[in-house]
Nucleic acid binder design. Structure first.
Length: 697
DNA sequence: ACGTACTGCGCCCTCTGCTGGTTTTTT
DNA sequence: AAAAAAACCAGCAGAGGGCGCAGTACGT
């Protein structure tokens, strides 16, 4: 049931109004509205009351709870009103003040009451403002005469489509009535729980003695004091687009819209920026442009942060980052986006679409910026992001950030294992480490031995502790190095072992013309042409220190010397690297090349003496079959000349004499050496017979 | 009816930052 | 030679700027 009250000013009615509205016009409009409601185009139904005509022609005003009030027709306008297009019997009625009002006891009942206030104006009375016995509709016929026009329903006989209340006032022209549809404060207002009802019925009479018109949009909150304005507004709810573009046939609601559109075809942009050369189709675009580019005026402020925007829509978009709202759900995965663009961009993952192509290499990308970054590879105009803390440069800012994170920030200071110094970050730590490069920081506490690596020092310490952790599982032999164990197993326990072929000797001494296969041996040999006295002293100190043994006595670590060594008993071999090698036993070999060997039979070859300071390299020489264990390979100067084998324990830095050397070797060690010398080549092929070992200075 | 100010929506762009895989350099 | 570190690179998402354009409000 529809029940609409519209109030118009009599003067408007009589004069046709500015917009030409007459009662008939209003009827037409309301009737249109009614029809739309009936066809379902419009949702609201005013269930608060209805007016109907009974069989005898009496008009009744009925509330939803069934209570009724009779309305008596006191005059018949018959004129404009009767000419309405509602199609039903129309007439003006005056609400009867005396009628048999039926008790109402519900709020909804009173919601639609129309009454005359003490000031003589027609008012709609909200339930809370109705006093006892005040439930009657009153119409004063004094100076102000309100006529209620009832339009019966065309589809449901006996029902009323709407009621039109027309005020006839002697001073209507002076009317300054304000209808406030949003602030129902001081006036009497109609209130309903239904928002749509409010649209129709909320009328507040504020300060006037008279009632003037209220033109309300039935689709939205729009109201206007002028009928023609409402009429114009109603076009916005219409889908009618009478203004057609001659170019693309597209229709527009307004001529202005069409003109703007046509300008997009013609390229006409009449609005020129006074600050720059930009031109725009509409003045609004120009204003916005000026705000964005020139004045930076940002009227829309975020209440939660400092953000401000030129456009409200941007602020709304921004607010989603505070609220976390993500209205745009991806149909293929759980991702939801705060705006349409991000969703669209995201969807490329699922569609595989890569709209951005590099014209040089035709690589394709999902995002324009990816292409942009990619193109820099071709152009060579790569930006350089230089680290402020070191000389490093990165091609991307984000990579520089990672660099700074990894190299220049550290939770705790990094301590140098070589010298104990602490450094605030990885970069300074690494720089410091370089200062130790080549430096033998890992020093033995028992002898002058020093190494560049802790691992080698650990290995060296086995000498002092007399440990041989690498035990052969097939015999009772044990070794200090894994490589030695492997060689032993090859030689003694692996019948299928085939030693590699010997290589050509290419290193020739410029002094004496002697040839060596390995450069290190040549270097070592060269030392005999220029012996270093200080090196010999160092070697002697090392030799003495090497005799120290650590033993646990009563739970305490005690340093002990294994034997007395006569300084004169030791023979030193000097490499040009400054390292010295003590020869305790020398064996002449067939290939004529000098190989200093350890007790385990490992021959010292070229790079062992290459002066790098890294450490000697011991290499197996497969065809270096020992002819005999001889001391003759040592020259008169005490220098090894030619193939020889040296006890591991003899790799010390002191000079000795060949006869005494033998006495330095324990009987057991000598026996072991003898045995190993016979099979001094036993490394696997893949090892190439090389293991790394450091020599103390 | 016309002109203009203004609004809202949509599109595209840029900048930014994070992530993870790949390649290069260093150890 | 291999492992680790560093640098490089593509993919992707968050946030915001700027503009095109249709539509609305409103004064004249």
């Amino acid at each position: 049931m529809i029940f609409i009250i519209a109030i118009v000013n009599e003067s408007d009615r009589m004069e046709g109004g500015e917009g030409g509205e007459t009662i008939s016009d209003i009827h037409n409009y309301l009737d249109t509205f009614n029809k739309e409601i009936q066809t379902g185009d419009q949702g609201p139904t005013a269930d608060v009351a209805q007016v109907f005509v009974d069989e005898s022609g009496q008009y009744f005003y009925q509330n939803v709870d069934g209570t009724q009030q009779q309305m008596v027709v006191v005059s018949s306008d018959g004129g404009d009103a009767s000419e309405g297009e509602s199609g039903g019997a129309e007439g003006s009625v005056m609400l009867n003040t005396e009628e048999d009002s039926i008790n109402d006891d519900g709020d909804s009942l009173s919601q639609s009451r129309v009454a005359l206030g003490e000031d003589g104006t027609l008012q709609v009375i909200p339930s809370m403002q109705q006093g006892e016995g005040n439930n009657q509709v009153v119409l004063n016929t004094g100076d102000n005469n309100q006529i209620v026009t009832i339009v019966p329903s065309s589809t449901n006989p006996g029902e009323v489509s709407y009621v039109l209340i027309v005020e006839q006032s002697s001073d209507a022209d002076k009317d300054d009535t304000v209808y406030d549809f949003n602030e129902p404060d001081e006036g009497l207002s109609y209130e309903s729980g239904d928002e749509d009802e409010k649209k129709m019925m909320r009328i507040i009479h504020k300060k006037s003695q008279t009632v003037t018109q209220a033109h309300m949009c039935n689709y939205c909150n729009y109201t206007s004091p002028k009928r023609y304005l409402l009429s114009r507004h109603m076009k916005s709810h219409s889908e009618e687009r009478p203004h057609k573009c001659s170019v693309c046939e597209r229709g527009f609601k307004t001529l202005a819209s069409l003109q703007n559109h046509v300008n997009t075809h013609t390229g006409i942009k009449p609005h020129r920026c006074k600050y720059c050369e930009s031109t725009f189709t509409t003045s609004g675009e120009l204003v916005r442009h000026v705000r964005y580019i020139h004045t930076h005026e940002k009227p829309h402020k975020c209440p939660d942060c400092d953000y401000a925007s030129v456009e409200l829509s941007k602020l709304k978009r921004h607010m989603r980052c505070h609220s976390g709202e993500r209205p745009y759900q991806c149909p293929h995965c759980t991702y939801a986006s705060p705006d349409t663009f991000k969703l669209k961009r995201h969807l490329r993952i699922h569609t595989g679409e890569k709209p951005y192509e590099c014209e040089i290499c035709h690589a394709r990308f999902t995002q324009s910026n990816s292409l942009k970054a990619h193109k820099l590879i071709h152009t060579g105009n790569k930006p350089v992001y230089a680290c402020e803390l070191c000389p490093t440069t990165c091609g991307r800012k984000t990579d520089l950030r990672i660099h700074v994170q990894k190299l220049h920030t550290s939770d705790k200071p990094l301590k140098c294992k070589k010298c104990g110094k602490a450094f605030p970050d990885r970069y300074t730590f690494k720089q410091h480490n370089k200062s130790h490069e080549g430096e033998k920081c890992f020093k033995c506490e028992l002898c002058p031995y020093a190494s560049t690596s802790a691992r080698h020092l650990e290995s060296h310490m086995l000498v002092h502790t007399e440990q041989k952790p690498y035990q052969c599982d097939q015999c009772d032999q044990a070794f200090r190095q894994k490589q030695l164990l492997k060689r032993h197993q090859n030689l003694y326990h692996n019948p299928e072992y085939i030693p590699p072929m010997p290589r050509e000797k290419t290193q020739e001494c410029p002094e004496c013309g002697k040839a060596f296969r390995h450069k290190g041996n040549l270097i070592r040999h060269m030392a005999i042409h220029d012996p270093d006295a200080s090196a010999q002293e160092k070697a002697q100190a090392l030799k003495i220190g090497r005799q120290k043994r650590l033993q646990l006595i009563n739970g305490q670590q005690v340093e002990m010397y294994t034997s007395e060594v006569d300084e004169d008993d030791i023979m030193a071999v000097d490499g040009q690297d400054g390292n010295q090698y003590v020869v305790l036993e020398v064996i002449q070999l067939q290939d004529g090349e000098g190989h200093v060997m350890m007790s385990d039979g490992i021959p010292v070859t070229d790079t062992s003496l290459d002066g790098t300071g890294v450490g000697g390299v011991l290499a197996a020489s497969p065809l270096m079959v020992p002819e005999a264990i001889t001391h003759d390979a040592i020259t008169a100067d005490g220098i090894v000349d030619g193939p020889c084998l040296v006890e591991e324990s003899a790799l010390l830095g002191l000079q000795t004499k060949k006869q005494e050397v033998k006495t330095e070797i324990g009987a057991e060690a000598k026996k072991e050496a003898q045995k190993e010398m016979e099979t001094c080549f036993g490394f696997d092929d893949e090892d190439e017979g090389q293991i790394h070992l450091e020599f103390g200075e």
